[in-house]
Write a protein that binds this DNA or RNA. Sequence first.
DNA 1: ATGATGCATGTAATCGTTTACAAAGCGACT
DNA 2: AGTCGCTTTGTAAACGATTACATGCATCAT
Lengths: 347, 347
Amino acid sequence: MTQQKPVRIVDVARAAGVSVATVSRTLSNPQVVNEATRQTVFEAIRSTGYRVNRAARNLRMQRAGAVLVMVPDLGNPFFSQVLAGISAGFAESDHAVLIADTAGQDAGAIVDHYFRDGRIDGLICLDAGIRAEDLARLAAQGIGDRIVFACEWIEGTGFASVRCDNEGGARLAMEYLHGLGHRAIAHLTGPAGNVLTHVRRAAMQAERRRLDLPARPEWIIRGDFSLASGEAAARQILAMDHRPTAVFCASDMGAFGLIAGLIEGGLRVPQDISVIGFDDIELAGHFLPSLTTIRQDRRRIGETAAELLRARLDRADSRPLPENRLRRIGVELMLRGSTGPAPRSIS
Amino acid sequence: MTQQKPVRIVDVARAAGVSVATVSRTLSNPQVVNEATRQTVFEAIRSTGYRVNRAARNLRMQRAGAVLVMVPDLGNPFFSQVLAGISAGFAESDHAVLIADTAGQDAGAIVDHYFRDGRIDGLICLDAGIRAEDLARLAAQGIGDRIVFACEWIEGTGFASVRCDNEGGARLAMEYLHGLGHRAIAHLTGPAGNVLTHVRRAAMQAERRRLDLPARPEWIIRGDFSLASGEAAARQILAMDHRPTAVFCASDMGAFGLIAGLIEGGLRVPQDISVIGFDDIELAGHFLPSLTTIRQDRRRIGETAAELLRARLDRADSRPLPENRLRRIGVELMLRGSTGPAPRSIS
DNA sequence: ATGATGCATGTAATCGTTTACAAAGCGACT
DNA sequence: AGTCGCTTTGTAAACGATTACATGCATCAT
């Protein structure tokens, strides 16, 4: 019941009959110590139950032993999968994983503080909402290559980044709808200013041009990845003179809201209108109707980001290897129940 | 572009023309230093851009400056909300928030290592799957009161705990269904061995007895909080000779799967059978039909857990205040579309 | 015998703080 | 004047590891 005092390295040294230096070396650089001594030391470590004090090691080695994951909204289930991947990717490493929610706070300042406090060695950023000047400051401090963006990224900067193949996803969706006979295809976008919004919409439009499909301004419907924005979009569509026969949504959540709204408005999905999402969140397969969508492996994005950052942290300061800046994780079309052949034209 | 070396406390001392002790005191104990000196020091801190090195401070103060959140499955959106609350609760503190996914690993060992490595000062545990002997070891090390369980807990131990009012939730659900005329009420449970499974089922059964409702063994359907288990439960119900007219599910995910399965099997929800969930996850209001459920404020559970742990960390070692061990967060019945009056009896 | 070489280990400085203790300055009181 | 008390500040010893450097000892060529 009483607080037992922790074992220090000198206790191990005493138990093994060697100096602290030898114990330390046995732990960090085993091959330089004599086989017999090594065994003695390991035995002493085992019998004393020694564990190295991280604060001391970190202070001496001038490192933090931790990385930070900045999440725009921890409550959003989308990110939890990425987080799980990151956590798994660092499980074997001796870096701890810190999290911070940027919600409503100045992301740049937070990151700057964590770094300058010596609390973190690196950063995985799921939030591209950092101001350019903050980034410049970070890069100027020479820590630019210990930052990895995941899912989102910032155009025109040299930071490492892991993302899914957004363009490929949009292409898959459009080709598939086209193959089903759809010509009038609308797009429900993400929030304004978001890089994913931009890229997915641009790819969708490029593909529409390539397939020589008709375009109407009102068929690009502004959303924000949320359920509510999908429901709002449904109302807009219901009110249109020229309704699309299919909608490609930039997110599953938006697609869910859209479907709910359309059905409430009296349309049948997919008989009257097809809907396709993006993400493939867990519920997509169980929604009614189940959702055809572009699957991005969020867990793998997280794992890959962890891998990338670890590689950058491990090489300490040996200059080379600024390659491998961008990793694209493949996407997959998940065929389900929310899409079907285009209805016969009413015109 | 060049790595600029960090400002140390001696740099500030030099800039202010005082000793390092004075600078340190100004930061940690301002009222003991003279007003004028204090101003000078603050100015020096500002002009040098000094930030205290956490590793050094932690080493000297024998603390870690961090807490750990153990999550059974980071990928599960249920926990991400709790995590968001915890993160918010520690935003103002100077404790960093570490996360670890216990998936497939020995939770007890992980916790023990984090503590003994001096990496954490406290723990919030969302996973009650720790072995009793590990807990005993932790308690023996005198850190028992720096552990807070959230959502789940372990019966018969003295650890602090934050949870929703599970019994009240079950009661609300049963009373409501009873009021709608339902008599044959089934229950879809959580996974075996889980404390939430046990408590919710026990409360449901107690309420059923109190309301003098009929009981049948097959109306207690084993689930595991997952979509798939809900779908399996639907198949069981469809095959029953005496079908219940309502099902109280221990989780929303289970309820979603159940509804999907029932509808697929030709039943109408809620006309033929009512379904009520537990949790109120975001999608509950947007599912088709929308899900009547017991809302538990997961974010607030997280915030409260953070609050409790902070209080325990702050009081350092002053013995008192082992009170306030248990906090129950209230639940709320969310009336939606998956429940309706009991169908007229067929018998 | 002597010096060079190499391996294994020990000694002690160092990382950047906090804080116990000592000391200095200044009134006030006897 | 001497003593005491109080406030404010400085000096230096921790905290617990890592590692540059020194040392000791064996081996081997000259």
